[in-house]
Design a protein around this nucleic acid. Sequence first.
DNA 1: ACAATAAAAATGAACGTTCATTCTTTTTTT
DNA 2: AAAAAAAGAATGAACGTTCATTTTTATTGT
Lengths: 192, 192
Amino acid sequence: MAQLQKSIDKRNALIKATIELVNNNGFHATPMSKIAKMANVSPATIYLYFENKQDLVNKTYIDVKAQYTSYAFETYTTDMSVEHGFEIIWKRIADFKLNESENAMFLAQCDNTPIIDEPSLQEGIKHLQPLLDLWERGKKEGLIKNMSNYLLYAYAINPLSFLMMAQKRGAFQLEASQLEDAYQSAWSSIKN
Amino acid sequence: MAQLQKSIDKRNALIKATIELVNNNGFHATPMSKIAKMANVSPATIYLYFENKQDLVNKTYIDVKAQYTSYAFETYTTDMSVEHGFEIIWKRIADFKLNESENAMFLAQCDNTPIIDEPSLQEGIKHLQPLLDLWERGKKEGLIKNMSNYLLYAYAINPLSFLMMAQKRGAFQLEASQLEDAYQSAWSSIKN
DNA sequence: ACAATAAAAATGAACGTTCATTCTTTTTTT
DNA sequence: AAAAAAAGAATGAACGTTCATTTTTATTGT
């Protein structure tokens, strides 16, 4: 127990360091030695937890993606109405993207570059299923536009990534009232 | 003249090679030697055209961004109505993102990573002004929601980046009829 | 018009550095 | 005392950049 605990702490420290360094410097300027230093570990120790650098960044991606979806669906249950369920999920996602912005930023970087390998990307997509199911239900009930789920995601969810990025860059600040505007825009772009 | 022409060709070849390699392999796996090889040039020659690797990628970004905005506003004039002007611009942007996807993909990568330095990012933003002006006009006329331009961009334009990326990954194909859906979603998310 | 010469552009090889990874030894845990 | 975990130093490869040289282009004097 104590031994396993210690290992998990170290693994988490490595993942945290990876996120922070890749966010700030990019993958190309994030050497293993810096990751090790930030996690208070020897470079060699990384290789006890991960096969190599690619494996480290893949696993980091999967880890963060799992956190993201778990957070998103935390308060959602399938017995909610389509509109209410969507609002619940959307606001959780907004919370995650704007408050846990280190994690969200890392995902944005991974989703827009070829640094994560295909199997790991696939692995990350899986957990989004509850939202897709909700949308299918909404389409059947005639509440949601009969469009591809990609289009729905593009308009209802993805804008939050852009806003998170703009906020991270200090370009602007999303206030609570604007968040309500944003939600209305999201809903009106996908509702029938 | 002949000499200058030759130089511009070589510069363009270098920029094209940079885009292609960074798109496919990422910045971290794009050595100067590969860029040189793809542009049919000696590595040393790159340094006659650009200060260093950072400068090369900065200049590439600015170059592509200028192409993007120039394409976007090609058929737009300020005497158009807000709604018509927006449709014109939106569809040009959609064209660019979906047809010139190599260029669009490169921009997406740059806009979601720290590989481009701040001054070059600022330089790239400048040319978007006509769209922001159009939106300001739309707000005054009560046609467009009175929201931050960041929010408007997030909902009206940014989804196209996501769709371009999904299409590039082969996840799905955006048909002409879906494009019309997409435009309607964009417009309904920002109109009053 | 044309050699001769200067200037510019381009090259391949070389340099010093940095990196991911491994090896050997030490420390910690069982 | 054995096994597992961790460490620091070592290694070889790869990288960005520069150097010495060659090739191409432009300029000059006749």
